[in-house]
Design a protein around this nucleic acid. Structure first.
Lengths: 123, 123
DNA sequence: CATCAATATTGATGAATGTCGATAGGGCTT
DNA sequence: AAGCCCTATCGACATTCATCAATATTGATG
């Protein structure tokens, strides 16, 4: 789960897309993104799907066009994610609701709250 | 470069190793880590190598044993990394020296300091 | 209804990667 | 020196994944 979250940023094209999206500070259509990242349109769609599944971007369907934008609240998750992985933070610390993935909403499983189980680490 | 940094955390075994290492709060030998993560010793060595190359862990050779420990300063990099990717931070903001990867020491390449070029994103 | 534009999906392909067994290298101990 | 531990490296294998070309889908417009 954590690994999946990080692996989502482990691809150059996705980092690029995210950066372009953040710099634009406005929703962008797929076509605009395609023009900005030097890979084909199917590939961009593929990456956007992955980014959306993990929650890094949000989609809005408007007519023929699909507008993607960065989920700003995800920025706030990075310190928590880091400290959680590093075992220096209570688990399930409050984070913005929009940013909570399914596996973050589960109840604590016991322990001191910082041990990551094998199942939790796997994407 | 950024993608490589994140991809390093994009594997469940590596997240697990990092977590175990952080929880121990002391250097661990490879053997101890192997006992803690349910994959073979060669695989653990492989992952430790990757973690060390990116700078997440530090190594110390003591006699027969190799002691690995978390590079604590890397914790402080996460917020910067996130904001850089998201384009909301000046590039090359001061970070602890130990945590600087080669690509962080380069001089700014121009622009407003938040545009990630294709070359920079690639691992 | 036919057509066009924008986006998603499918299928295929080549590259990267995680894993293991086997082996090699280095440093103790007897 | 011989043997034993600990760790790294090598070779192989299966899997995942990024990418593209081609096609399907969806919505607007004539």
């Amino acid at each position: 789960m954590w690994a999946r979250w990080f692996r989502c940023l482990g691809d150059a094209s996705r980092v690029l897309i995210l950066n372009r999206l953040a710099l634009a500070r406005r929703p962008m259509s797929v076509g605009e993104i395609v023009d900005a990242v030097d890979v084909g349109q199917p590939t961009v769609s593929h990456h956007l799907k992955i980014l959306a599944e993990v929650g890094f971007v949000l989609v809005e369907r408007r007519a023929n066009v699909r507008l993607y934008r960065v989920n700003d609240h995800c920025l706030e998750m990075f310190p928590s994610a880091a400290e959680l992985v590093m075992g220096q933070l209570q688990r399930y610390a409050p984070v913005p609701t929009e940013c909570r993935a399914p596996w973050q909403q589960a109840a604590p499983t016991g322990g001191d709250g910082s041990v990551i189980t094998q199942g939790e680490a796997i994407g």
